[in-house]
Amino acid sequence: MSDLVLPEALRGVEPVRSIRTPARLEYTFTAGQATSRFLRGISRKKILGERCGVCGKVILPPRGSCPNDGVPTSEQVELPDRGIVTTFCVVNVKFSGSAMELPYVCATVVPDGSDMGLFGMVQEIPFDQIRMGMRVEAVWVDDDDLTHDLASIKWWRPTGEPDADYESYREHV
């Protein structure tokens, strides 16, 4: 501390070491045109990517532009709700709000025909058997619970098909 001279009344008073100033702001998001198309599809159990007219890649989930070329995506592409695990992690720590039993696996799943992956969980298989290249399919929530939200896909589970060849997904790793 500096040599600040305190008034008599404040000498010997415990210094303030921290203060708490709570702040809360509420926002109403606009998903945008492309994301709205995607989320409407999700609520009908459809995974809708969008193709870039320049590079031909299928962007998923679409946000309105091709991140490589900076142009609006020009063609809607319906993708199957099955694909491959390209990368994953085993979660060993409980996060607030998560009801998942530990350990569980978060993964990037690239649906067949897509050039980008969706984030999700892999279940219905022991965590230590999950691997890159594993083929999986979406497990959707009950029809009555479908919403405009990726939580409409509960998780992904193995299809039992042979693993994909590494070369087929190396670009996503």
Partner: peptide, 11 residues
């Protein structure tokens, strides 16, 4: 701007 998100507004 109700229909477009930020990138759709900027592009």
């Amino acid at each position: 701007e109700q229909a477009r998100n930020e990138v759709e507004m900027v592009m």
